[in-house]
């Protein structure tokens, strides 16, 4: 006698939680809880099963129109297929980098990609200055161009160990290991409690962990 198993209709881009769990630090139940969060974020403006840039901005800033260089970079890195939206699998795989159990090396690599604005394989001096200026624009901190130059110059001279005017992945790794606070924002302790935050996943769960 077969057992009756009903599969609910899933949104486009939905991926099997057991596959996502196998590829990430999340349990199957945690992936299902992340799906509850994903459904909320991906339906906040256009209910089509994808997180659009405006929905991402709305979740981060409570403002769908607030452009921010760093949010743009995070969105682009989450959008692994580069099709302009974040799908569920991309969301889970990318958030996996921010899990407390993810190796530091993976976090360091992700941060490097974030800061390598032009994706040249190096963080260049101009990129670093652009990022400092962008940060100042979103904060209340006002610094003169001279002070910005000093900060950038000092940081660059510390990180660019080979002194060739650009920071490569190896130099970045060494620099972060000396200054671990630089990747503090690459860990979200919240991800360990995701099933507590979204207990409604139980209603839609297809497995028992």
């Amino acid at each position: 006698m077969g057992c009756y198993h009903s599969k609910k209709a899933k949104s486009p881009g939905y991926e099997d939680p057991s596959i996502l769990s196998a590829e990430t630090p999340f349990t199957v139940n945690e992936v299902e809880a992340l799906h509850e969060l994903f459904k909320k974020l991906s339906s906040s403006i256009i209910d089509d099963g994808f997180i659009h840039k405006e929905e991402f901005q709305l979740a981060l800033f409570r403002n769908r129109n607030k452009r921010n260089l760093f949010a743009d970079r995070v969105f682009d890195l989450f959008d692994l297929k580069r099709n302009g939206v974040i799908e569920f699998g991309e969301f889970v795989r990318s958030l996996g980098v921010f899990h407390p159990n993810t190796p530091t090396e993976d976090k360091i690599t992700f941060a490097f990609k974030l800061y390598d604005l032009r994706q040249t394989g190096y963080i260049e001096r101009e990129e670093l200055k652009d990022m400092v200026v962008a940060l100042l624009q979103e904060s209340d901190l006002v610094l003169s161009d001279e002070v910005i130059e000093i900060i950038v110059h000092k940081t660059f001279s510390e990180a660019d160990a080979k002194g060739d005017g650009r920071i490569d992945q190896e130099e970045w790794k060494e620099f972060v290991l000396k200054n671990p606070s630089l990747i503090k924002n690459m860990t979200l302790p919240y991800l360990k409690d995701i099933t507590v935050a979204f207990p409604s996943f139980v209603l839609n769960s297809e497995v028992e962990d």
Binding site: L41, L60, N68, V74, V132, A134, V147, I151, V152, L182
Partner: peptide
């Protein structure tokens, strides 16, 4: 002059755009 001693990457890491914990706020 405090800001001059700042690490540029440390400054950048405080961006709201890099603070993904906001995604989980109800």
């Amino acid at each position: 002059m405090a800001p001059v001693t700042m690490n540029a990457f440390e400054l950048i890491s405080t961006s709201q755009g890099l603070n993904l914990s906001s995604l989980f706020e109800k």
